[in-house]
Write a protein that binds this DNA or RNA. Structure first.
Lengths: 130, 130
DNA sequence: TTCATATTTTGATAGGTATCGAAATATGGA
DNA sequence: TCCATATTTCGATACCTATCAAAATATGAA
C-alpha cells in the first residue's frame, strides 16, 4: 500500500461521523446499507452525511452501488486489511519471537479465497477483491 | 476502547511525518529510538518533530522515557491493537463463517492483547508485509 | 408529464492543523 | 561554574476541514 493511500484512509477515519459510518458498515457485512438508513441511524443531516460518505469513498474505504432510488454503501475490507498491514509492516524487525503479526477481517463473500487462507501472508500473495 | 481515543489515534496517524515516525517505531520494536535519531532519519526539523511526537504521545500511540540527554520514544503496541479491534469490532455481525477477526502485533515484552482477538492463524509466527 | 423520494452539490461560515525560526529548558561533562 | 548537546515551547503564518441551508439531480410511480 502506498503511503498517500494510507494517510487518506486514516484521515477519513479520524472523524466521528465517518468512523461511526465505517464501523456501522463493517458490522453490517458485505451487503452494506443505504445512505438514508445510515443517516437515520446516526442522526446526521443528509448533506453532511453525503460529504462524509464521499470522503470515505475517495479514501477507498467504502464502495457504493445504486439500487433504485437508494445508494447502498459497504465497507471495503481489503482496504482496511491493507491499511493495518501497512501500519504494522515488519513490526519488531520481523523478529518472530517478539511479535505475532496481523490478520484482519476478511468476509468470505468478498473473496474467492478458501477460509483457511485468512492471514497477512495470503493477503500479500493473493489478489482478491477491491 | 472509547471513541474519542480511537479518533485521537487515527488523527495522529493521518499525517505523513507522524505516520512515518510511528511506523519507524513499530519496526524498531519495544526498545524505541531517541528523538534525535528519528528526526535525523526522516529529515524533519526538531521543533516540527517535537510537535508531532507530542501529538502521538497525547494520542497514546507512543510513550517516552529520558535516557541521559536523549528522550527515547517507543510504539505502544497495545494502543494499536485496541484501535484495530475498535475499528473491526463485531465485523460482519460476528458471523464466524463470513469473517476472520483481527489480531495485531504483540511484542513479548508488552502485556497481552485480548484473547478473543486471537485465532489459530494469528498464532502462526511469521513476517508481516504490506 | 407531474409529483414525491433519495441523495448530492453549492456556497458561506467557523474552526482546526502544520510549519519552523527563535528562544527556552534540561542534562552531563570540563 | 560555564559550555555543548538534546529537546521542547512560543508565536506568527499559511493552509485545510466540518457543517448545513438551499438548490440541483436522479429515480420511480401516478
Amino acid at each position: 500500500m502506498k503511503k498517500e493511500k494510507a494517510i487518506a484512509a486514516l484521515a477519513a477515519l479520524a472523524q466521528e461521523s465517518r468512523l461511526d459510518v465505517f464501523r456501522m458498515l463493517v458490522q453490517s457485512g458485505p451487503d452494506g446499507l443505504p445512505a438514508g438508513e445510515i443517516g437515520a441511524r446516526l442522526g446526521v443531516p443528509s448533506p453532511t452525511l453525503s460529504f462524509h460518505l464521499n470522503h470515505l469513498k475517495h479514501a477507498a474505504l467504502v464502495s457504493c452501488r445504486r439500487d433504485s432510488r437508494s445508494i447502498i454503501y459497504s465497507a471495503d475490507y481489503k482496504a482496511m486489511n491493507d491499511l493495518i498491514s501497512y501500519m504494522m509492516e515488519n513490526c519488531c524487525r520481523g523478529d518472530a519471537n517478539q511479535c505475532a503479526p496481523v490478520a484482519a477481517c476478511k468476509p468470505a463473500r468478498e473473496t474467492n479465497v478458501k477460509p483457511r487462507l485468512r492471514n497477512a501472508e495470503s493477503e500479500k500473495r493473493g489478489k482478491v477483491n477491491a
